[in-house]
Design a protein around this nucleic acid. Structure first.
Lengths: 207, 207
DNA sequence: GTATTAGAATACTGATGGGTATTTAAAAGT
DNA sequence: ACTTTTAAATACCCATCAGTATTCTAATAC
């Protein structure tokens, strides 16, 4: 691979590396437990690099949160925009988090850690709110489509279902984090099938 | 009120005060953000009192977690053991967390904070696991009763419903913490009605 | 080729916080 | 009354960490 020559490329790469290792380290050691030294070291750099790229630790966190939830949102979009059997797509989404004990656990931890931190840091909070609202918005639209398409009155309004689903997803993460055996395989997907899709008619092609 | 005279009473009171203020301070400032000094000061005591009552900060946390989830469990029991209309009981449970911005928010924060900390501290983790399992156990029994009593096949097994409910409860907390307006009033209760009780026949007396 | 400059390393500071050692004070035991 | 015991206060220690000031280095500009 061509090593970066230009200065711009190099600094951009460093910024990237810092954000990545921040995600790693925070996922492992927690938000307050992760020192800038540790983060920088994990990226093969020093604290100097951090302060050359970000104004403060909080600034780093804000950008990290942005990316973290952006990724979640992107996954959601992928699911919603696909024409493939919804059930399978959701199962995929569900399975992603448990990716081989490493990535999944780290991201789950990171997401919760950031959520919690946001409840105390106004800047983070605003970012988080807008991201989550956008995700719920998309979910709402999906449920609207479903309910309109089938001319059904769902037991909860589309926007309410959106809240329930995103909350359930996060809640399962919390529990899974400390007791992964307690969450049955594919529970999230099967729950959706049972409550939403079942009501609105089975979308998967019959055998 | 009769001031405590005996030494035993006095120390017991202090221990109590420390645990209470720990809940307060941690709910406000976060787990790592809450110093022992701050906690002790909030109880009108000093760090010396803390180390006289607990071996370490972690020990204090373990006992706090124990009480925190014990309280949750007690509430759950109260709901389950009551013969009153289930729906109303659940609504009460749902409403408790939002008690006037103060208590509710603090306890929600504390619960999540402890969950997250548990994912990194084995001792805490064990405690948390056993408590949560017990709660799920009770929920499972409730669903078993419902499904047996009505001779219905629920879309998910009783134990799966138990997981979904406790996860949803926690997930709603996470979202509510950062965007309280986004969680519609009584959503939790209405969700249960829509998915579980509706299926198993309306338990509230008809008008 | 030299000067400039910006990104990153190094060295340092100040404050904080968990934990410990020591002291104080007062209740309990005799 | 006195001694003993123990909870809690005080004072101290040391490690850590965010943030800063300075130095170094190498790519860009001239």
């Amino acid at each position: 691979m061509p090593k970066p020559v230009s200065r711009k490329e190099a600094t951009a790469r460093n910024r990237e590396k810092l954000l990545e290792s921040a995600a790693q380290v925070i996922g492992k050691s927690g938000l307050m437990g992760a020192s800038l030294h540790e983060i920088a070291a994990a990226a093969g750099l020093t604290k100097g690099a951090v302060y050359s790229q970000f104004d403060s630790k909080e600034d780093l966190l804000i950008e990290l949160l942005d990316r973290c939830f952006q990724m979640g949102h992107a996954q959601l979009l992928e699911v919603l925009s696909s024409d493939a059997p919804m059930v399978e797509r959701i199962a995929e989404l569900d399975a992603w988090h448990r990716g081989e004990e490493n990535t999944g656990r780290l991201w789950a931890n990171l997401e919760l850690e950031l959520s919690l931190a946001a409840s105390r840091q106004p800047k983070l909070r605003r970012k988080l709110r807008s991201r989550q609202r956008r995700s719920r918005e998309y979910l709402t639209q999906m449920f609207e489509k479903i309910s309109e398409g089938h001319n059904l009155t769902l037991p909860l309004s589309p926007s309410e279902f959106a809240v329930v689903l995103s909350a359930l997803s996060d809640g399962l993460l919390v529990h899974w984090l400390n007791d992964s055996k307690a969450i049955p395989e594919n529970l999230f997907a099967r729950f959706i099938v049972a409550t939403v899709l079942a009501v609105s008619g089975n979308e998967s092609s019959p055998p």
